[in-house]
């Protein structure tokens, strides 16, 4: 494996962790928005979401920073064109991030009407942000970002595939969050809430599954290169994902209590890595390869070293945080 490939792997790992942790975070926001209609149970759901998210949301989102930074440091020749072409959905995602994070924090300070409104903004922004991020990823997949960055500002992402990926980001995040929160509800000793999130997870799984099928067709027509990769070298991972997803769904329907979290996350991870394998050696499919995008070799080495330090320092700290959070040591 060449040095740029190693760093691309690091980038992909960051993206995976963001998809899992950040995704669950967004999904929890979507669930909070949906729960508005569910009366007393809904407000219990929101309280649960709030308690689960409060200590970890900021850390969950540092993965995004990590990806941006690795992208522009290690692959400046991909970062520039990406930003130049897809500035519209990227700006929208940035606005979503601001609204989401600050509304969530404000929800803790205020009470009454202001609190409710903060929660609503938080929920809406939890839909907008992953949607536009999905559009960005979909547009990249469709090969809409040329090497010189002079892509179309609108038609690059206002197309079936990017929009489908956007919706898929929202729904799969929601599904993942419901599976995770289901566990939290069980641990918190609330069987009714456990069943509530189980229903949400099943619903999410159904929608995300149907969209994925549609996605396969969209890929076939709009991103042939990626489609070939996914059905070629990426196929084992896609099958693994399908299997895990099916197992989760069966488990949900049967009311299995434990062990679904890693499977649900695993299904997502397998798709992301299948995708990575499929688009290799491109970073921006069919336009910019990993090697062509890569920055100076000394910088790539530096990024690898920084990453090792991050593993040693941040890894244990993150585990510590999640442990404390699970043990309900952290509270408002």
């Amino acid at each position: 494996m060449s040095k740029p490939d190693v760093v691309a792997g690091i980038l992909w790992l960051g993206a995976t962790l963001y998809a899992v942790f950040g995704g669950a975070d967004f999904g929890a926001g979507v669930l909070s928005l949906i729960s508005e209609r569910d009366g007393e149970l809904g407000s219990r759901a929101r309280a649960r979401i709030n308690r689960s998210l409060t200590p970890v949301w900021e850390a969950n989102h540092v993965w995004l920073i990590f990806c941006l930074v690795v992208l522009w440091t290690a692959f400046p020749r991909a970062f520039g064109p990406l930003m130049e072409t897809l500035y519209v959905p990227l700006t929208a995602a940035a606005i979503g991030i601001v609204l989401r994070g600050s509304a969530f924090a404000f929800g803790h300070a205020f009470s009454g009407r202001t609190k409710r409104r903060s929660e609503q903004v938080f929920g809406l922004a939890s839909v907008i942000t992953p949607f536009f991020m999905g559009c960005v990823v979909g547009a990249v997949a469709a090969g809409a970002v040329p090497a010189d960055g002079a892509g179309e500002p609108f038609s690059s992402w206002l197309a079936p595939l990017p929009i489908l990926v956007g919706i898929l980001f929202v729904t799969s995040s929601t599904y993942l969050a419901a599976v995770l929160l289901r566990d939290d509800a069980r641990r918190g000793g609330d069987p009714e809430l456990f069943r509530y999130f189980t229903r949400r997870a099943i619903g999410g799984a159904a929608v995300a599954g149907a969209l994925s099928v549609a996605g396969v067709f969209a890929l076939r027509s709009d991103a042939r290169f990626l489609f070939d990769g996914l059905t070629g070298p990426g196929l084992p991972l896609m099958i693994a994902s399908l299997l895990m997803g099916t197992l989760v769904l069966v488990g949900l329907v049967k009311g299995v209590e434990r062990g679904l979290r890693p499977l649900a996350a695993g299904a997502l991870v397998a798709v992301i890595w299948g995708w990575g394998v499929a688009q290799h050696p491109y970073l921006l499919p069919e336009n910019v390869t990993i090697d062509a995008a890569a920055g100076a070799p000394q910088t790539l080495t530096a990024v690898i070293i920084v990453f090792i330090f991050a593993l040693l320092i941040v890894g244990p700290a993150l585990i510590f945080l999640y442990r404390l959070s699970q043990m309900q040591v952290l509270e408002d």
Binding site: E58, A59, V62, I65, F66, V69, V70, W72, T73, A74, P76, R77, F79, G80, P81, M83, G149, G295, A296, T299, A302, V303, V306, F309, A310, I313, V314, A317, L318, F320, L321
Partner: peptide
Amino acid sequence: MEQWGDVFGTGFAIEGIFFFTEAI
């Protein structure tokens, strides 16, 4: 960013570690 990202970017990469530590 395109021309100089790999020269100065390491600073931001290191900053990532500190952001994590801070947020956690």
